[in-house]
Write a protein that binds this DNA or RNA. Sequence first.
RNA 1: GCACCCGUAGCUCAGCUGGAUAGAGCAUCAGCUUGCGGAGCUGGGGGUCGCAGGUUCAAAUCCUGCCGGGUGCACCA
Length: 567
Amino acid sequence: MYPIQKAKQQILQELKKAVGGGFSPSIDDFALPPDPSLGDVAFPCFTLAKNLKRNPNEIATEIAAKIGPKEFIADVRAIGPYVNFVFSSEFGTSILSDISEREETYGRSNVGENKRVMIEYANLNTHKDVHIGHLRNLFLGQMLISVLEANGYDVIPVAYINDLGAHVAKSVWAISKFHKDEEVSKENQIDFLREVYVEATKAVEENPAYKEEVAAVFRNLEEQRGDEVKIWKKTWQWSVDFLEEVYTELNIKLEKWYFESDLIGKTRKIIDDLIKKGIVIQSEGAWIVDLEEEKLGVNLLVKSDGTLLYNAKDLGLALKKEEDYHPTRSIYVVDARQSHAIQQLFATLARMKFERELYHLAYEFVTLSDGVMASRTGNVIRYETFRDRLITQAQKATKERHSDWDEKQIESTSRLIAFAAMRFGMLKQDVEKKIIFDFNEALSFEGFSGPYLLYSFARIQNLFNKAGKVKPILDAQSLNHPLEHQLITQLARYPEVLFEISQTYQLNQLARYLFDLCQVFSHYYNEVPILKSEKSVQTSRLGLIQSVEQVLKNGLWLMGIEPIDEM
RNA sequence: GCACCCGUAGCUCAGCUGGAUAGAGCAUCAGCUUGCGGAGCUGGGGGUCGCAGGUUCAAAUCCUGCCGGGUGCACCA
Protein backbone atom coordinates (compact mmCIF):
# COMPACT_ATOMS: atom_id res chain seq x y z
CA MET A 1 0.00 0.00 0.00
CA TYR A 2 1.23 3.45 -0.88
CA PRO A 3 1.54 6.18 1.77
CA ILE A 4 -1.23 8.18 0.14
CA GLN A 5 -3.58 5.25 0.60
CA LYS A 6 -2.46 4.74 4.17
CA ALA A 7 -3.03 8.40 4.90
CA LYS A 8 -6.52 8.26 3.48
CA GLN A 9 -7.31 5.12 5.43
CA GLN A 10 -6.23 6.86 8.61
CA ILE A 11 -8.44 9.81 7.81
CA LEU A 12 -11.39 7.52 7.09
CA GLN A 13 -10.89 5.86 10.46
CA GLU A 14 -10.94 9.21 12.19
CA LEU A 15 -13.98 10.35 10.27
CA LYS A 16 -15.87 7.21 11.22
CA LYS A 17 -15.02 7.71 14.86
CA ALA A 18 -15.93 11.38 14.77
CA VAL A 19 -19.31 10.90 13.13
CA GLY A 20 -20.28 7.51 14.55
CA GLY A 21 -23.65 5.94 13.94
CA GLY A 22 -22.61 3.47 11.29
CA PHE A 23 -21.19 6.18 9.08
CA SER A 24 -18.68 4.66 6.67
CA PRO A 25 -17.21 7.00 4.10
CA SER A 26 -15.13 5.59 1.26
CA ILE A 27 -11.87 6.59 -0.29
CA ASP A 28 -13.76 7.96 -3.29
CA ASP A 29 -15.48 10.57 -1.13
CA PHE A 30 -12.35 12.66 -0.86
CA ALA A 31 -11.83 15.76 -2.90
CA LEU A 32 -8.81 17.78 -3.82
CA PRO A 33 -8.84 21.32 -2.42
CA PRO A 34 -8.64 23.94 -5.17
CA ASP A 35 -5.76 25.67 -3.48
CA PRO A 36 -2.96 23.80 -1.67
CA SER A 37 -3.00 26.33 1.13
CA LEU A 38 -6.43 25.06 2.14
CA GLY A 39 -5.17 21.55 2.81
CA ASP A 40 -3.99 18.35 1.15
CA VAL A 41 -7.22 16.39 1.03
CA ALA A 42 -10.73 17.50 1.67
CA PHE A 43 -13.82 15.76 2.89
CA PRO A 44 -17.01 17.47 1.68
CA CYS A 45 -19.91 17.25 4.13
CA PHE A 46 -22.82 17.70 1.75
CA THR A 47 -24.14 14.17 1.60
CA LEU A 48 -23.71 13.80 5.33
CA ALA A 49 -25.60 17.04 5.81
CA LYS A 50 -28.41 15.83 3.63
CA ASN A 51 -28.76 12.56 5.52
CA LEU A 52 -28.69 14.28 8.88
CA LYS A 53 -30.78 17.17 7.61
CA ARG A 54 -28.29 19.62 9.03
CA ASN A 55 -26.08 22.45 7.89
CA PRO A 56 -22.86 21.12 6.25
CA ASN A 57 -20.77 23.97 7.67
CA GLU A 58 -21.73 23.06 11.21
CA ILE A 59 -21.05 19.41 10.61
CA ALA A 60 -17.64 20.20 9.19
CA THR A 61 -16.80 22.30 12.22
CA GLU A 62 -17.92 19.56 14.60
CA ILE A 63 -15.96 16.88 12.81
CA ALA A 64 -12.84 18.99 12.66
CA ALA A 65 -13.05 19.63 16.38
CA LYS A 66 -13.20 15.93 17.13
CA ILE A 67 -10.14 14.95 15.11
CA GLY A 68 -6.69 15.77 16.34
CA PRO A 69 -3.22 15.38 14.85
CA LYS A 70 -2.24 11.75 14.51
CA GLU A 71 0.42 9.94 12.48
CA PHE A 72 -0.01 11.17 8.91
CA ILE A 73 -2.47 13.87 9.88
CA ALA A 74 -0.90 17.09 11.06
CA ASP A 75 -3.87 19.37 11.06
CA VAL A 76 -7.60 19.26 10.59
CA ARG A 77 -9.65 22.32 9.88
CA ALA A 78 -13.14 23.13 8.79
CA ILE A 79 -13.38 25.58 5.97
CA GLY A 80 -16.97 26.14 5.01
CA PRO A 81 -18.64 22.79 4.33
CA TYR A 82 -15.31 20.99 4.00
CA VAL A 83 -13.08 19.25 6.49
CA ASN A 84 -9.57 19.78 5.25
CA PHE A 85 -6.65 17.63 6.27
CA VAL A 86 -3.02 18.57 6.20
CA PHE A 87 -0.42 15.85 5.97
CA SER A 88 2.27 15.62 8.60
CA SER A 89 6.01 15.52 8.14
CA GLU A 90 5.87 11.82 9.07
CA PHE A 91 3.79 11.43 5.96
CA GLY A 92 6.38 13.36 3.99
CA THR A 93 9.20 11.20 5.25
CA SER A 94 7.22 8.12 4.43
CA ILE A 95 6.68 9.34 0.86
CA LEU A 96 10.33 10.10 0.35
CA SER A 97 11.53 6.76 1.63
CA ASP A 98 8.82 4.91 -0.25
CA ILE A 99 9.93 6.45 -3.54
CA SER A 100 13.54 5.79 -2.71
CA GLU A 101 12.87 2.14 -1.92
CA ARG A 102 10.64 1.41 -4.86
CA GLU A 103 12.60 3.43 -7.39
CA GLU A 104 11.26 2.74 -10.88
CA THR A 105 8.42 0.66 -9.50
CA TYR A 106 6.98 3.58 -7.54
CA GLY A 107 3.48 4.17 -8.84
CA ARG A 108 2.94 0.69 -10.24
CA SER A 109 0.08 -1.55 -9.24
CA ASN A 110 -1.04 -5.11 -9.81
CA VAL A 111 -4.68 -4.57 -10.76
CA GLY A 112 -4.01 -6.22 -14.07
CA GLU A 113 -2.63 -9.43 -12.67
CA ASN A 114 -3.76 -12.47 -14.64
CA LYS A 115 -5.37 -10.34 -17.27
CA ARG A 116 -4.12 -10.47 -20.78
CA VAL A 117 -4.75 -7.42 -22.88
CA MET A 118 -4.12 -7.30 -26.57
CA ILE A 119 -3.42 -3.91 -28.02
CA GLU A 120 -3.76 -3.47 -31.74
CA TYR A 121 -2.06 -0.31 -32.90
CA ALA A 122 0.56 0.89 -35.36
CA ASN A 123 -1.71 -0.24 -38.18
CA LEU A 124 0.27 1.29 -40.97
CA ASN A 125 -0.16 0.72 -44.66
CA THR A 126 2.33 -0.59 -47.09
CA HIS A 127 2.80 1.45 -50.26
CA LYS A 128 2.19 4.66 -48.34
CA ASP A 129 3.98 7.25 -46.25
CA VAL A 130 4.15 7.48 -42.51
CA HIS A 131 2.88 10.91 -41.57
CA ILE A 132 2.28 12.92 -38.43
CA GLY A 133 -1.24 11.52 -38.11
CA HIS A 134 0.24 8.06 -37.66
CA LEU A 135 2.51 9.36 -34.93
CA ARG A 136 -0.46 10.01 -32.71
CA ASN A 137 -1.49 6.40 -33.09
CA LEU A 138 2.01 5.05 -32.51
CA PHE A 139 2.62 7.08 -29.37
CA LEU A 140 -0.81 6.45 -27.89
CA GLY A 141 -0.45 2.73 -28.40
CA GLN A 142 3.06 2.70 -27.09
CA MET A 143 2.12 4.60 -23.95
CA LEU A 144 -0.93 2.47 -23.37
CA ILE A 145 1.29 -0.61 -23.44
CA SER A 146 3.64 0.86 -20.84
CA VAL A 147 0.84 2.06 -18.59
CA LEU A 148 -0.96 -1.27 -18.61
CA GLU A 149 2.24 -3.21 -18.06
CA ALA A 150 3.06 -0.92 -15.15
CA ASN A 151 -0.26 -1.96 -13.64
CA GLY A 152 0.40 -5.64 -13.93
CA TYR A 153 -1.40 -6.50 -17.14
CA ASP A 154 0.01 -9.05 -19.51
CA VAL A 155 0.10 -6.95 -22.64
CA ILE A 156 0.36 -8.31 -26.17
CA PRO A 157 0.98 -5.48 -28.62
CA VAL A 158 0.33 -6.25 -32.26
CA ALA A 159 0.10 -4.38 -35.52
CA TYR A 160 -2.20 -5.06 -38.42
CA ILE A 161 -0.55 -4.06 -41.64
CA ASN A 162 -2.81 -3.11 -44.44
CA ASP A 163 -0.90 -4.48 -47.40
CA LEU A 164 -3.69 -5.49 -49.71
CA GLY A 165 -6.30 -2.80 -49.85
CA ALA A 166 -7.60 -0.85 -52.79
CA HIS A 167 -4.79 1.65 -52.38
CA VAL A 168 -2.24 -1.11 -52.91
CA ALA A 169 -4.02 -2.34 -56.02
CA LYS A 170 -4.06 1.18 -57.34
CA SER A 171 -0.34 1.59 -56.81
CA VAL A 172 0.57 -1.77 -58.28
CA TRP A 173 -1.64 -1.08 -61.27
CA ALA A 174 0.02 2.30 -61.85
CA ILE A 175 3.49 0.80 -61.63
CA SER A 176 2.69 -1.92 -64.13
CA LYS A 177 1.04 0.56 -66.45
CA PHE A 178 3.35 3.57 -66.27
CA HIS A 179 6.60 2.44 -64.65
CA LYS A 180 7.15 -1.13 -65.72
CA ASP A 181 10.78 -2.23 -65.35
CA GLU A 182 11.83 1.16 -64.03
CA GLU A 183 14.90 1.01 -61.84
CA VAL A 184 14.41 2.46 -58.37
CA SER A 185 17.34 2.89 -56.03
CA LYS A 186 17.07 1.81 -52.44
CA GLU A 187 16.86 5.31 -51.01
CA ASN A 188 14.15 6.37 -53.46
CA GLN A 189 11.77 3.50 -52.92
CA ILE A 190 9.34 5.22 -50.59
CA ASP A 191 9.44 8.47 -52.57
CA PHE A 192 8.67 6.47 -55.66
CA LEU A 193 5.70 4.75 -54.03
CA ARG A 194 4.35 8.03 -52.76
CA GLU A 195 4.54 9.67 -56.16
CA VAL A 196 3.01 6.67 -57.86
CA TYR A 197 0.09 6.73 -55.50
CA VAL A 198 -0.67 10.37 -56.15
CA GLU A 199 -0.24 9.78 -59.87
CA ALA A 200 -2.54 6.75 -59.80
CA THR A 201 -5.26 8.60 -57.92
CA LYS A 202 -5.15 11.40 -60.43
CA ALA A 203 -5.17 9.07 -63.41
CA VAL A 204 -8.18 7.13 -62.17
CA GLU A 205 -10.06 10.33 -61.44
CA GLU A 206 -9.41 11.63 -64.90
CA ASN A 207 -10.16 8.41 -66.66
CA PRO A 208 -12.90 6.36 -64.97
CA ALA A 209 -12.27 3.51 -67.39
CA TYR A 210 -9.11 2.76 -65.40
CA LYS A 211 -11.25 1.75 -62.45
CA GLU A 212 -11.97 -1.59 -64.05
CA GLU A 213 -8.26 -2.19 -64.65
CA VAL A 214 -7.48 -1.46 -61.02
CA ALA A 215 -10.26 -3.78 -59.92
CA ALA A 216 -8.80 -6.52 -62.09
CA VAL A 217 -5.40 -6.03 -60.47
CA PHE A 218 -7.05 -6.20 -57.05
CA ARG A 219 -8.66 -9.53 -57.90
CA ASN A 220 -5.37 -10.88 -59.18
CA LEU A 221 -3.54 -9.82 -56.06
CA GLU A 222 -6.11 -11.38 -53.83
CA GLU A 223 -5.83 -14.64 -55.74
CA GLN A 224 -2.08 -14.24 -55.92
CA ARG A 225 -1.95 -14.73 -59.68
CA GLY A 226 -0.87 -12.75 -62.72
CA ASP A 227 2.14 -10.54 -63.41
CA GLU A 228 1.18 -7.96 -60.82
CA VAL A 229 2.02 -10.27 -57.96
CA LYS A 230 5.71 -9.85 -58.70
CA ILE A 231 5.42 -6.09 -58.53
CA TRP A 232 3.39 -6.37 -55.38
CA LYS A 233 5.93 -8.64 -53.69
CA LYS A 234 8.82 -6.39 -54.59
CA THR A 235 7.20 -3.16 -53.46
CA TRP A 236 5.73 -4.90 -50.42
CA GLN A 237 9.24 -5.66 -49.26
CA TRP A 238 10.29 -2.05 -49.79
CA SER A 239 7.46 -0.88 -47.59
CA VAL A 240 7.97 -3.46 -44.90
CA ASP A 241 11.66 -2.57 -44.69
CA PHE A 242 10.69 1.05 -44.36
CA LEU A 243 8.10 0.40 -41.64
CA GLU A 244 10.62 -1.68 -39.77
CA GLU A 245 13.03 1.26 -39.80
CA VAL A 246 10.39 3.61 -38.46
CA TYR A 247 9.31 1.21 -35.73
CA THR A 248 12.89 0.67 -34.68
CA GLU A 249 13.66 4.36 -34.63
CA LEU A 250 10.60 5.06 -32.49
CA ASN A 251 11.11 2.03 -30.31
CA ILE A 252 7.70 0.60 -31.17
CA LYS A 253 7.17 -2.71 -29.42
CA LEU A 254 5.28 -5.42 -31.30
CA GLU A 255 4.75 -9.03 -30.44
CA LYS A 256 3.53 -9.73 -33.93
CA TRP A 257 2.72 -8.14 -37.25
CA TYR A 258 -0.47 -9.36 -38.85
CA PHE A 259 -0.75 -8.82 -42.58
CA GLU A 260 -4.01 -8.33 -44.35
CA SER A 261 -2.75 -10.45 -47.23
CA ASP A 262 -2.36 -13.43 -44.89
CA LEU A 263 -5.98 -13.35 -43.83
CA ILE A 264 -7.71 -13.93 -47.13
CA GLY A 265 -8.12 -17.70 -46.87
CA LYS A 266 -9.19 -17.66 -43.24
CA THR A 267 -11.66 -14.87 -43.85
CA ARG A 268 -13.26 -16.70 -46.76
CA LYS A 269 -13.79 -19.76 -44.59
CA ILE A 270 -15.38 -17.66 -41.87
CA ILE A 271 -17.73 -16.03 -44.32
CA ASP A 272 -18.79 -19.36 -45.81
CA ASP A 273 -19.55 -20.53 -42.33
CA LEU A 274 -21.51 -17.38 -41.52
CA ILE A 275 -23.52 -17.76 -44.70
CA LYS A 276 -24.48 -21.26 -43.60
CA LYS A 277 -25.54 -19.89 -40.25
CA GLY A 278 -27.57 -17.19 -41.91
CA ILE A 279 -25.62 -14.38 -40.31
CA VAL A 280 -24.17 -13.26 -43.62
CA ILE A 281 -26.73 -12.76 -46.36
CA GLN A 282 -26.66 -11.69 -49.96
CA SER A 283 -27.90 -8.25 -50.87
CA GLU A 284 -27.62 -6.33 -54.10
CA GLY A 285 -25.06 -8.83 -55.29
CA ALA A 286 -22.83 -8.35 -52.27
CA TRP A 287 -22.56 -10.24 -48.98
CA ILE A 288 -23.51 -8.37 -45.86
CA VAL A 289 -24.47 -8.63 -42.22
CA ASP A 290 -27.68 -6.77 -41.60
CA LEU A 291 -27.13 -4.73 -38.44
CA GLU A 292 -30.26 -2.60 -38.62
CA GLU A 293 -31.37 -4.03 -35.30
CA GLU A 294 -28.28 -2.60 -33.64
CA LYS A 295 -28.83 0.61 -35.61
CA LEU A 296 -25.49 0.12 -37.32
CA GLY A 297 -26.66 -0.24 -40.89
CA VAL A 298 -25.22 -2.98 -43.02
CA ASN A 299 -21.80 -4.44 -42.57
CA LEU A 300 -20.59 -5.00 -46.10
CA LEU A 301 -18.11 -7.87 -46.21
CA VAL A 302 -17.81 -9.09 -49.78
CA LYS A 303 -18.17 -6.89 -52.84
CA SER A 304 -20.31 -8.04 -55.72
CA ASP A 305 -17.14 -8.76 -57.68
CA GLY A 306 -16.21 -11.27 -55.02
CA THR A 307 -13.31 -9.42 -53.41
CA LEU A 308 -13.14 -9.01 -49.66
CA LEU A 309 -13.63 -5.74 -47.89
CA TYR A 310 -11.66 -4.43 -44.94
CA ASN A 311 -14.46 -5.27 -42.51
CA ALA A 312 -14.39 -8.89 -43.60
CA LYS A 313 -10.68 -9.24 -43.02
CA ASP A 314 -11.03 -7.62 -39.62
CA LEU A 315 -13.29 -10.50 -38.73
CA GLY A 316 -10.60 -12.94 -39.79
CA LEU A 317 -8.07 -11.00 -37.76
CA ALA A 318 -10.19 -11.07 -34.61
CA LEU A 319 -10.43 -14.84 -34.73
CA LYS A 320 -6.76 -15.23 -35.56
CA LYS A 321 -5.80 -13.10 -32.58
CA GLU A 322 -8.02 -15.22 -30.40
CA GLU A 323 -6.38 -18.43 -31.64
CA ASP A 324 -2.90 -17.04 -31.18
CA TYR A 325 -3.21 -15.34 -27.80
CA HIS A 326 -6.75 -15.70 -26.36
CA PRO A 327 -6.66 -12.29 -24.66
CA THR A 328 -9.29 -11.43 -22.06
CA ARG A 329 -9.54 -7.96 -23.47
CA SER A 330 -8.77 -6.56 -26.84
CA ILE A 331 -8.09 -2.87 -27.39
CA TYR A 332 -8.15 -1.34 -30.83
CA VAL A 333 -6.18 1.90 -31.03
CA VAL A 334 -7.78 3.21 -34.17
CA ASP A 335 -8.74 6.60 -35.62
CA ALA A 336 -12.20 7.81 -34.53
CA ARG A 337 -13.25 7.97 -38.18
CA GLN A 338 -13.42 4.18 -38.12
CA SER A 339 -15.79 4.16 -35.14
CA HIS A 340 -18.74 3.07 -37.20
CA ALA A 341 -16.81 0.26 -38.85
CA ILE A 342 -15.42 -0.89 -35.52
CA GLN A 343 -18.88 -0.89 -33.96
CA GLN A 344 -20.05 -2.99 -36.88
CA LEU A 345 -17.16 -5.35 -36.30
CA PHE A 346 -17.97 -5.67 -32.61
CA ALA A 347 -21.66 -6.19 -33.34
CA THR A 348 -20.89 -8.86 -35.91
CA LEU A 349 -18.57 -10.63 -33.51
CA ALA A 350 -21.31 -10.51 -30.90
CA ARG A 351 -23.64 -12.27 -33.30
CA MET A 352 -20.99 -14.89 -33.77
CA LYS A 353 -21.01 -15.41 -30.00
CA PHE A 354 -17.45 -14.16 -29.75
CA GLU A 355 -17.39 -13.31 -26.09
CA ARG A 356 -14.38 -11.21 -25.27
CA GLU A 357 -14.07 -7.70 -23.98
CA LEU A 358 -13.61 -5.43 -26.95
CA TYR A 359 -12.68 -1.80 -26.66
CA HIS A 360 -12.12 0.85 -29.26
CA LEU A 361 -9.67 3.49 -28.12
CA ALA A 362 -10.77 6.11 -30.60
CA TYR A 363 -8.66 9.18 -31.14
CA GLU A 364 -9.37 12.15 -33.31
CA PHE A 365 -7.15 12.79 -36.28
CA VAL A 366 -4.31 15.21 -36.79
CA THR A 367 -5.20 17.94 -39.19
CA LEU A 368 -3.46 20.89 -40.75
CA SER A 369 -4.85 24.36 -40.33
CA ASP A 370 -5.32 24.49 -44.09
CA GLY A 371 -7.04 21.15 -44.48
CA VAL A 372 -7.04 17.46 -43.72
CA MET A 373 -4.03 15.41 -44.63
CA ALA A 374 -4.49 12.86 -47.38
CA SER A 375 -1.93 10.63 -49.03
CA ARG A 376 -4.14 10.59 -52.12
CA THR A 377 -3.39 14.23 -52.79
CA GLY A 378 0.07 14.30 -51.28
CA ASN A 379 -1.05 16.88 -48.75
CA VAL A 380 0.75 15.36 -45.78
CA ILE A 381 3.51 16.20 -43.37
CA ARG A 382 5.67 13.15 -43.39
CA TYR A 383 7.19 11.74 -40.25
CA GLU A 384 10.72 12.23 -41.55
CA THR A 385 10.10 15.85 -42.46
CA PHE A 386 8.71 16.61 -39.05
CA ARG A 387 11.47 14.73 -37.27
CA ASP A 388 14.23 16.47 -39.19
CA ARG A 389 12.80 19.91 -38.58
CA LEU A 390 12.55 19.19 -34.88
CA ILE A 391 16.10 17.95 -34.75
CA THR A 392 17.38 20.98 -36.64
CA GLN A 393 15.55 23.25 -34.27
CA ALA A 394 16.97 21.44 -31.26
CA GLN A 395 20.47 21.54 -32.69
CA LYS A 396 20.25 25.27 -33.15
CA ALA A 397 19.18 25.80 -29.57
CA THR A 398 21.74 23.36 -28.21
CA LYS A 399 24.62 24.92 -30.13
CA GLU A 400 23.73 28.34 -28.78
CA ARG A 401 23.86 27.06 -25.25
CA HIS A 402 26.90 24.86 -25.48
CA SER A 403 29.52 26.31 -27.77
CA ASP A 404 32.03 23.95 -26.18
CA TRP A 405 30.20 20.74 -27.08
CA ASP A 406 31.37 18.56 -29.93
CA GLU A 407 29.15 17.57 -32.84
CA LYS A 408 28.40 14.18 -31.39
CA GLN A 409 27.12 15.52 -28.12
CA ILE A 410 25.03 18.16 -29.83
CA GLU A 411 23.60 15.57 -32.16
CA SER A 412 22.63 13.05 -29.51
CA THR A 413 21.17 15.65 -27.17
CA SER A 414 19.21 17.30 -29.97
CA ARG A 415 17.68 14.03 -31.01
CA LEU A 416 16.43 13.35 -27.51
CA ILE A 417 14.98 16.84 -27.22
CA ALA A 418 13.32 16.51 -30.60
CA PHE A 419 11.72 13.16 -29.80
CA ALA A 420 10.60 14.39 -26.40
CA ALA A 421 8.89 17.35 -28.05
CA MET A 422 7.30 15.08 -30.64
CA ARG A 423 5.96 12.55 -28.18
CA PHE A 424 4.77 15.03 -25.62
CA GLY A 425 3.02 17.06 -28.29
CA MET A 426 1.03 14.04 -29.39
CA LEU A 427 0.27 12.77 -25.91
CA LYS A 428 -0.64 15.95 -24.10
CA GLN A 429 -4.05 16.30 -25.65
CA ASP A 430 -7.28 14.47 -24.99
CA VAL A 431 -7.92 11.82 -27.64
CA GLU A 432 -11.38 13.20 -28.28
CA LYS A 433 -9.95 16.39 -29.63
CA LYS A 434 -8.32 16.63 -32.97
CA ILE A 435 -4.85 18.04 -33.08
CA ILE A 436 -4.58 21.06 -35.29
CA PHE A 437 -0.99 20.70 -36.27
CA ASP A 438 1.00 23.89 -36.29
CA PHE A 439 4.71 23.82 -36.98
CA ASN A 440 5.45 26.84 -34.83
CA GLU A 441 3.76 25.29 -31.87
CA ALA A 442 5.21 21.86 -32.49
CA LEU A 443 8.71 23.31 -32.69
CA SER A 444 8.32 25.33 -29.53
CA PHE A 445 10.32 24.02 -26.61
CA GLU A 446 8.70 26.25 -24.03
CA GLY A 447 5.83 25.90 -21.65
CA PHE A 448 3.66 22.80 -21.78
CA SER A 449 6.12 20.77 -23.79
CA GLY A 450 8.45 17.80 -23.61
CA PRO A 451 11.62 19.90 -23.41
CA TYR A 452 10.22 21.73 -20.37
CA LEU A 453 10.16 18.44 -18.51
CA LEU A 454 13.63 17.54 -19.73
CA TYR A 455 14.87 20.91 -18.58
CA SER A 456 13.56 20.32 -15.08
CA PHE A 457 15.24 16.96 -15.04
CA ALA A 458 18.54 18.39 -16.25
CA ARG A 459 18.43 21.04 -13.55
CA ILE A 460 18.03 18.36 -10.91
CA GLN A 461 21.00 16.49 -12.35
CA ASN A 462 23.00 19.65 -12.20
CA LEU A 463 22.17 20.11 -8.55
CA PHE A 464 23.41 16.64 -7.75
CA ASN A 465 26.58 17.20 -9.72
CA LYS A 466 27.26 20.33 -7.75
CA ALA A 467 26.32 18.72 -4.48
CA GLY A 468 29.25 16.37 -4.96
CA LYS A 469 29.64 14.06 -2.02
CA VAL A 470 26.80 15.51 0.02
CA LYS A 471 24.40 12.65 0.62
CA PRO A 472 20.68 13.35 0.48
CA ILE A 473 18.69 12.23 3.48
CA LEU A 474 15.07 11.20 3.41
CA ASP A 475 13.48 13.22 6.13
CA ALA A 476 10.66 15.72 5.79
CA GLN A 477 11.07 17.07 9.31
CA SER A 478 12.75 20.26 8.18
CA LEU A 479 10.87 20.59 4.90
CA ASN A 480 8.43 23.19 6.10
CA HIS A 481 8.27 25.52 3.18
CA PRO A 482 4.80 25.56 1.55
CA LEU A 483 6.36 24.61 -1.77
CA GLU A 484 8.08 21.65 -0.18
CA HIS A 485 4.81 20.55 1.24
CA GLN A 486 3.20 20.98 -2.13
CA LEU A 487 5.90 18.95 -3.84
CA ILE A 488 5.49 16.12 -1.40
CA THR A 489 1.74 16.04 -1.86
CA GLN A 490 2.17 16.03 -5.62
CA LEU A 491 4.67 13.16 -5.41
CA ALA A 492 2.28 11.27 -3.18
CA ARG A 493 -0.49 11.48 -5.76
CA TYR A 494 1.50 9.81 -8.53
CA PRO A 495 0.35 6.23 -7.83
CA GLU A 496 -3.27 7.37 -7.87
CA VAL A 497 -2.78 9.14 -11.17
CA LEU A 498 -1.13 6.16 -12.80
CA PHE A 499 -3.78 3.78 -11.54
CA GLU A 500 -6.55 6.03 -12.77
CA ILE A 501 -5.02 6.19 -16.23
CA SER A 502 -4.74 2.43 -16.42
CA GLN A 503 -8.49 2.20 -15.86
CA THR A 504 -9.76 5.12 -17.91
CA TYR A 505 -7.11 5.17 -20.66
CA GLN A 506 -7.00 8.94 -20.36
CA LEU A 507 -3.35 9.05 -21.24
CA ASN A 508 -3.12 12.83 -21.43
CA GLN A 509 -3.54 12.99 -17.65
CA LEU A 510 0.05 11.97 -17.18
CA ALA A 511 1.42 14.80 -19.30
CA ARG A 512 -0.63 17.19 -17.19
CA TYR A 513 0.52 15.65 -13.94
CA LEU A 514 4.21 15.71 -14.84
CA PHE A 515 3.97 19.25 -16.05
CA ASP A 516 2.34 20.32 -12.79
CA LEU A 517 5.06 18.56 -10.85
CA CYS A 518 7.76 20.33 -12.82
CA GLN A 519 6.05 23.66 -12.42
CA VAL A 520 6.02 23.33 -8.67
CA PHE A 521 9.63 22.22 -8.80
CA SER A 522 10.64 25.18 -10.96
CA HIS A 523 8.90 27.53 -8.65
CA TYR A 524 10.64 25.93 -5.70
CA TYR A 525 13.98 26.02 -7.47
CA ASN A 526 13.64 29.75 -8.02
CA GLU A 527 12.27 30.49 -4.61
CA VAL A 528 14.29 28.35 -2.24
CA PRO A 529 18.04 27.79 -2.20
CA ILE A 530 18.88 24.13 -2.16
CA LEU A 531 22.67 23.89 -2.16
CA LYS A 532 23.15 27.27 -0.53
CA SER A 533 21.15 26.37 2.51
CA GLU A 534 22.61 25.20 5.79
CA LYS A 535 23.84 21.64 5.90
CA SER A 536 20.98 19.93 7.75
CA VAL A 537 18.33 21.50 5.55
CA GLN A 538 20.39 21.03 2.44
CA THR A 539 20.52 17.25 2.76
CA SER A 540 16.76 17.05 3.28
CA ARG A 541 16.13 19.26 0.30
CA LEU A 542 18.36 17.07 -1.79
CA GLY A 543 16.34 14.11 -0.58
CA LEU A 544 13.18 15.79 -1.78
CA ILE A 545 14.70 16.66 -5.14
CA GLN A 546 15.85 13.10 -5.54
CA SER A 547 12.25 11.95 -5.19
CA VAL A 548 11.10 14.48 -7.75
CA GLU A 549 13.74 13.14 -10.10
CA GLN A 550 12.58 9.57 -9.59
CA VAL A 551 8.91 10.26 -10.19
CA LEU A 552 9.68 12.44 -13.18
CA LYS A 553 11.83 9.70 -14.63
CA ASN A 554 9.13 7.10 -14.05
CA GLY A 555 6.50 9.23 -15.73
CA LEU A 556 8.66 10.15 -18.68
CA TRP A 557 9.48 6.53 -19.20
CA LEU A 558 5.81 5.71 -19.54
CA MET A 559 5.53 8.37 -22.20
CA GLY A 560 8.49 6.91 -24.02
CA ILE A 561 10.61 9.96 -23.30
CA GLU A 562 14.25 9.54 -22.39
CA PRO A 563 15.50 12.15 -19.92
CA ILE A 564 18.87 13.87 -20.39
CA ASP A 565 21.35 15.01 -17.80
CA GLU A 566 22.42 18.12 -19.63
CA MET A 567 20.75 20.10 -22.35
C1' G B 1 -31.89 12.57 -42.97
C1' C B 2 -29.60 9.48 -38.96
C1' A B 3 -25.33 8.50 -35.66
C1' C B 4 -20.78 9.83 -33.03
C1' C B 5 -17.28 13.74 -31.34
C1' C B 6 -16.23 18.84 -30.30
C1' G B 7 -17.84 24.16 -28.87
C1' U B 8 -14.21 27.15 -21.83
C1' A B 9 -9.33 33.78 -22.24
C1' G B 10 -7.02 36.63 -28.87
C1' C B 11 -4.94 31.32 -30.22
C1' U B 12 -4.14 25.96 -28.54
C1' C B 13 -6.04 23.36 -24.61
C1' A B 14 -6.97 21.46 -18.87
C1' G B 15 -11.03 21.11 -15.67
C1' C B 16 -16.65 17.45 -17.13
C1' U B 17 -18.20 9.98 -12.01
C1' G B 18 -21.95 17.97 -10.00
C1' G B 19 -19.40 21.05 -5.10
C1' A B 20 -14.96 25.96 -2.13
C1' U B 21 -12.67 32.38 -5.89
C1' A B 22 -13.09 28.70 -13.71
C1' G B 23 -6.91 27.01 -14.67
C1' A B 24 -2.38 26.22 -17.99
C1' G B 25 0.65 27.12 -22.32
C1' C B 26 1.32 30.56 -26.35
C1' A B 27 0.61 35.71 -27.51
C1' U B 28 0.61 40.65 -24.92
C1' C B 29 2.35 44.25 -21.01
C1' A B 30 5.57 45.00 -16.48
C1' G B 31 9.42 42.84 -13.65
C1' C B 32 13.38 38.92 -11.99
C1' U B 33 20.32 36.45 -13.75
C1' U B 34 26.69 40.55 -8.22
C1' G B 35 22.07 33.84 -5.58
C1' C B 36 21.91 25.95 -7.63
C1' G B 37 21.36 26.65 -15.86
C1' G B 38 16.52 32.73 -18.24
C1' A B 39 14.42 26.07 -22.72
C1' G B 40 13.20 29.24 -16.24
C1' C B 41 10.45 32.37 -12.39
C1' U B 42 6.93 36.42 -10.56
C1' G B 43 2.95 39.76 -11.55
C1' G B 44 -0.91 42.49 -14.78
C1' G B 45 -4.64 42.74 -18.50
C1' G B 46 -7.87 39.26 -20.97
C1' G B 47 -13.75 34.59 -19.73
C1' U B 48 -22.12 35.86 -20.91
C1' C B 49 -17.64 28.22 -19.73
C1' G B 50 -22.06 28.26 -27.79
C1' C B 51 -27.57 29.59 -26.65
C1' A B 52 -32.22 28.43 -24.03
C1' G B 53 -34.79 25.60 -20.67
C1' G B 54 -34.77 21.68 -16.77
C1' U B 55 -32.94 18.63 -12.38
C1' U B 56 -30.37 20.11 -7.59
C1' C B 57 -29.06 23.15 -1.44
C1' A B 58 -25.17 23.49 -5.52
C1' A B 59 -24.23 22.98 -12.88
C1' A B 60 -18.47 24.55 -17.19
C1' U B 61 -19.67 19.52 -15.31
C1' C B 62 -26.04 15.84 -15.45
C1' C B 63 -30.89 15.90 -18.80
C1' U B 64 -33.73 18.05 -23.07
C1' G B 65 -34.02 21.27 -27.22
C1' C B 66 -31.62 24.56 -30.50
C1' C B 67 -27.23 26.87 -32.99
C1' G B 68 -22.18 26.32 -34.88
C1' G B 69 -17.93 23.08 -36.40
C1' G B 70 -15.92 18.17 -37.49
C1' U B 71 -16.47 12.97 -38.74
C1' G B 72 -19.06 8.73 -40.38
C1' C B 73 -23.35 6.19 -42.54
C1' A B 74 -23.34 -0.44 -49.32
C1' C B 75 -19.21 -2.32 -52.91
C1' C B 76 -13.06 2.96 -50.00
C1' A B 77 -9.86 1.71 -45.81
